[in-house]
Amino acid sequence: MKSNKLSRVVRRILLYAVIIAITAITVYPVLVVINTSLRPSNALYTTSLSLIPENATVRAYVSILLDKPFLLWMRNSLIVAIAVTLLGVTLASTAGYAFSRFSFPGRRSGMIGLLVTQMFPATMLLLPLFVLMRGLGLVDTLMGLVVAYTATVLPFTVWTMKGYYDTIPRDLEEAAMVDGASQIGAFVRVVLPLARPALMITGLFSFMAGWSEFIVARVILSSQSLYTLPLGLEGLAGTFQTEWATYSAGSLLVSLPVVALFLILNRFLVGGLTLGGVKG
């Protein structure tokens, strides 16, 4: 009895130790970046461990917003990410519905095919992707990025949507169809509102895929005016010297919209919406 209690305490301590360690590992780099972004340029290589450096300054933030085409990069990134989100959510929600509700030739192989694409490393696909884009005339266009990113996220999002639709009882659509809705009407009025949590995840995932991707963008884009944020940031790392403070400030600014988006969507990411509609 006593040893039981003891072991429970020990287990609890171990558990917390692990959680704290993981949190520290996760948070530390972010803190360092914050710290770096606030340093005056003459103190870049300090060994001080304080979170807010001495003579802290926001000069780096001013510099990246005003001296660099940061807003242009952000505009490009927003265009791409929003387009990927809209396209990705539209395609995933409809394709997932088809996979969930209809039986058609190729349904099974289609689902498996989607999974298989996830098994290849992305870098392996770069060359064929480039060749494809060239064939489509999409090299060095934002559209090319949108197509590439959407194609990358779809397998995951289609599966997510399909899995969620599977949990929505078919009775609900059938009731809607008997009530006077068409198949599409039942989908839009009944199924989609109930699938909101999955739609949010799909949207968030698509947005992030378009927002911070680097390698594909590097391959497809060459005009500086089309640079997205990751490409722009990379350009800050010069051959001979890098303004680390500016670079860090840029990185933080890039991550802000994603954090904000996540905080906003977080409260929608609750399941259980279908509770109570059908018994059981």
Binding site: P169, L172, M177, L194, T274, G277
Partner: peptide, 18 residues
């Protein structure tokens, strides 16, 4: 179904939860 002018009551009730 929508054009058949029928109404159906389901075993599960199938009320729209939202």
């Amino acid at each position: 179904p929508k054009d058949r002018d029928i109404a159906m009551v389901f075993q599960s009730y199938a009320l729209y939860p939202h």
